[in-house]
C-alpha cells in the first residue's frame, strides 16, 4: 500500500507547515519546504519522516475526520483496557464461583482479546488515516469481528459452565 497512484498532489509528502499557504504543492522534500512556525516544528523533525512514510503520501484529510479517527482509536483502547481489567478481575475475584479451568479459560480469553484489540487498534487507525489521505473507501475493521467472536466465545464458555455446573 504505497499509494502514490491517485490524487493531484502525490509528489508532496503531505506534511505541510501549519501556517503555510493553502494547498501549495509544497516542494518535494520534507527538509526544504517553507516553515512558518519553526519553533513548534523542531521536535517533530525526526519523526516527520517516519510519519510521512507510515501515512503513505496522499493529501491531508479534513481535520475533523482525522480527529474522529483518533477518537475511534481511543474508544478501541478503552475497550482493550476494559478487557484486560475484566480478565484480571475474573482471575482474582471468581475463586468461589468458577472451577479453575473455567476461570483460567475466561481470564486468558479476555486478556488475549484485550491484547488483540489494543494492538490492532493502532493498525486500524493507520489504515483509516491512509485511506482518508487517498480519498479511498474506508477499510473494514478486522478487529470488530475479532472482538465479536471473542466475546461470543467467552459467553459460550460461560454458558457451558452454567449448564454443567455441579449444583
Amino acid at each position: 500500500m504505497t499509494a502514490h497512484e491517485e490524487g493531484p498532489d502525490t509528489s508532496s509528502t503531505g506534511r505541510e507547515a501549519p501556517g503555510g499557504p493553502a494547498p501549495a504543492p509544497a516542494g518535494t522534500d520534507t527538509g526544504t519546504g517553507p516553515r512558518a512556525t519553526p519553533a513548534a516544528d523542531e521536535p517533530d523533525r525526526s519523526r516527520r519522516r517516519i510519519s510521512a512514510w507510515a501515512l503513505g503520501g496522499g493529501t491531508e484529510p479534513d481535520p475533523r475526520f482525522t480527529l474522529a479517527n483518533e477518537r475511534t482509536f481511543l474508544a478501541w483502547i478503552r475497550t482493550s483496557l476494559a478487557m484486560v481489567a475484566g480478565g484480571i478481575a475474573v482471575e482474582a475475584f471468581t475463586l468461589e464461583l468458577f472451577t479453575p479451568e473455567v476461570r483460567k479459560t475466561v481470564a486468558v480469553l479476555l486478556l488475549l482479546l484485550g491484547l488483540v484489540t489494543g494492538g490492532g487498534s493502532f493498525f486500524r487507525w493507520l489504515n483509516v488515516e491512509r485511506a482518508m489521505r487517498r480519498q479511498a473507501p474506508l477499510p473494514l475493521p478486522l478487529i470488530a469481528p475479532i472482538l465479536a467472536a471473542g466475546g461470543a466465545l467467552v459467553a459460550a464458555v460461560l454458558i457451558v459452565f452454567v449448564i454443567w455446573r455441579p449444583a
Binding site: 493553502a22 517516519i50 501515512l55 479534513d62
Partner: peptide, 8 residues
C-alpha cells in the same frame, strides 16, 4: 488541510 497527527 493541515497536518495534525503523525501517528507517534
Amino acid at each position: 488541510r493541515v497536518a495534525l497527527s503523525g501517528g507517534a
